[in-house]
């Protein structure tokens, strides 16, 4: 009998530290499946962020580097420049990529570094206990916006993907979501495209993934998926941005 579904070789068979209903586990698996399908496990070098996915290197079974908070794309830039034969990607959350690391993000994109970026947008800081992220929605209650985010005080949700899309050296940006099985399949397709682009030397490719954080959204895992569909998508519409 032909085996058509199994545990990805690039994913370590272990329990993760993620909360129930968290999207990171799904996103990690999608990356691992893509790496296996493209047969690039022995060429891949991942750069893990600071945030909930800080120990992603405990879950992926290929070479990984840590990076200081926000600096993943500076670290990845150097790795790829020194070793262009490798496939280098960063995995970063919204705080990492779009707050403390905005400068590194914009300039790596503007240089057109031939990198793949997996960007997890869950509109919150999870690791530190549910503070406002740059992508937190207006009205969304967090530890640091107890009355909800107010535009006049905290500004608007930052659409970093749309901002990056205007840069001429950026080649591919797509926003996907993990809120349903269909959307998960689309997310995998986008991640694969971002890796294929690097293999083909196309240039800077980023996939923004809307990902549930039931714990700090104060919702059940099921409600969190619905919240993405009913609320988050209005601010962050899905599809190809560039």
């Amino acid at each position: 009998m032909e085996k058509i579904f199994g545990h990805p070789k690039s994913l370590v068979d272990t329990k993760t530290h993620y909360c129930a209903g968290c999207g990171h586990g799904i996103a990690h698996r999608l990356v691992a499946e893509v790496v296996d399908e493209l047969d690039i496990r022995e060429r891949v070098i991942a750069v893990a962020p600071v945030g909930c996915a800080v120990v992603a290197y405990d879950y992926w079974d290929f070479d990984c580097s840590e990076a200081a908070h926000g600096r993943a794309l500076a670290v990845a830039t150097a790795i790829k420049r020194v070793r262009p034969q490798n496939i280098v990607f960063t995995y970063q959350g919204d705080g990492d990529l779009a707050a403390i690391g905005t400068n590194e993000t914009i300039h790596a994109a503007n240089r057109g570094e031939n990198l793949t970026v997996v960007f997890i947008n869950n509109a919150i800081y999870g690791m530190t206990g549910g503070q406002m992220a740059p992508t937190t929605l207006l009205g969304q209650k967090t530890a640091t916006t107890p009355k909800g985010r107010e535009a006049s005080l905290q500004g608007f949700p930052l659409k970093i993907s749309e901002m990056l899309a205007i840069l001429p050296a950026v080649k591919y940006i797509e926003r996907v979501s993990l809120h349903s099985p269909q959307e998960v399949l689309k997310a995998k397709k986008a991640i694969k495209q971002a890796f294929v682009n690097q293999i083909d030397n196309v240039g800077f490719s980023l996939v923004e993934i809307l990902s549930p954080c039931p714990t700090y959204w104060g919702l059940s895992p099921r409600q969190a998926l619905d919240w993405i569909r009913d609320v988050m998508l209005k601010e962050f519409p899905l599809g190809r941005i560039k």
């Binding site: 070098i45 750069v47 580097s65 990076a67 200081a68 600096r71 500076a74 670290v75 990845a76 830039t77 150097a78 790795i79 420049r81 020194v82 070793r83 400068n103 590194e104 914009i106 300039h107």
Partner: peptide, 19 residues
């Protein structure tokens, strides 16, 4: 690489050193 900041420069050095 002319980095965008000293932070980027030293973290690029981190990445290059890691290889």
């Amino acid at each position: 690489i002319q980095a965008e900041s000293e932070l980027a420069a030293i973290n690029m050095v981190f990445g290059a050193a890691a290889t």
